[in-house]
Simulated assay, not measured.
Amino acid sequence: MKWFNVGKIVNTHGVRGEVRVISKTDFPEVRYQKGNVLYLEQAERREKLPLTITSYRKHKQFDLLTFQGYENINEVEAFKGGLLKISEEQLNEDHLDEGEFFYHQIIGCTVFTDEGEELGKITEILSPGANDVWVIQSKKSKKQLLIPYIDEVVKEVNINEGKIIIHVMEGLLE
């Protein structure tokens, strides 16, 4: 079975079993809905632990979650450093609008300019604010290129071929 990382538990929050999560998910408001099940993966644990979400809220740059049956800090302290995952069956393409993609579909794609020059492969997606930023490992150098996912830059996304075409605006690659 294929598993996808949706977040990392970095700390506890308060004394009532809430945990701080740095999200890696495309749709936190959908993924963290009350009643959804996430699977906790930890190095010292052989099996993934299923956790049912009982609450979700945003706090600063974190997503705060509580889980059914874990109601105080002592019960969730051991979760720190663990990864929250979902199975491939839990992916739901119904959440995607036209021109939207899951992160795992974009990461690994090769980026070309609209003039045919290969820039490199997407290694990571950042979600700092209004739009996502795609991190490209440059084919020419060791530096990383940061490309905003906006209509003026990203011209074509072909998931099946793993190919993305962008328009290089003035100053974009500097």
Results as ranks from 00 to 15, higher is better:
V133I: 15
K142H: 12
V6D: 07
P50H: 09
F67G: 02
L96E: 00
H13T: 04
I53H: 12
G171T: 15
G35C: 06
F112D: 10
P50S: 11
G162K: 07
E41K: 10
Y70G: 11
Q68I: 03
E115N: 14
I107E: 00
K143N: 14
C109T: 06
E100S: 12
F27Y: 15
N92G: 13
K163L: 14
E156H: 08
V168N: 06
F4Y: 15
E100V: 08
E47Y: 09
G99P: 03
D94W: 10
E118T: 13
E41Y: 08
E124L: 03
W134Q: 12
R46Y: 03
Q68A: 14
Q33M: 13
E41C: 07
T66A: 13
S55K: 09
V135N: 01
I22D: 07
I159T: 13
L49K: 05
I136W: 01
G35R: 05
I86G: 02
D114Y: 11
A43I: 14
E98V: 02
H95I: 02
Q42E: 13
H95C: 02
E174Y: 08
K48T: 05
G7F: 11
K140Q: 14
E88T: 01
G162P: 09
K8E: 15
Q61R: 09
L173G: 13
P50I: 03
R46A: 12
E156Y: 09
R16V: 14
Q105H: 08
K155T: 06
G69E: 11
I106L: 11
T54D: 11
K143D: 14
M169V: 12
H59K: 08
S138A: 13
H104T: 05
Y149Q: 10
G7M: 05
I165M: 06
K155D: 07
L49I: 08
I150S: 09
E29K: 11
E44M: 09
K8I: 15
L146G: 01
Q90I: 00
S23T: 09
S87Q: 04
N74V: 01
R31E: 10
V6K: 03
L38C: 06
L51Y: 00
K85A: 01
L65E: 02
E118S: 14
V10P: 09
R16S: 15
D132C: 00
V21I: 05
K139M: 09
G99M: 06
E71K: 12
L51C: 02
N92M: 13
E41W: 04
L49G: 02
S23Q: 07
D97Y: 15
L91M: 02
S141Y: 03
Q137V: 05
K2T: 08
E156F: 05
V19W: 04
F112V: 05
K85F: 02
V135Y: 00
I106K: 00
I122E: 07
K139A: 14
L126T: 07
G162Q: 08
M169Q: 14
D151G: 04
V37M: 04
L40G: 02
K142T: 13
E174L: 11
N11A: 15
Q105P: 04
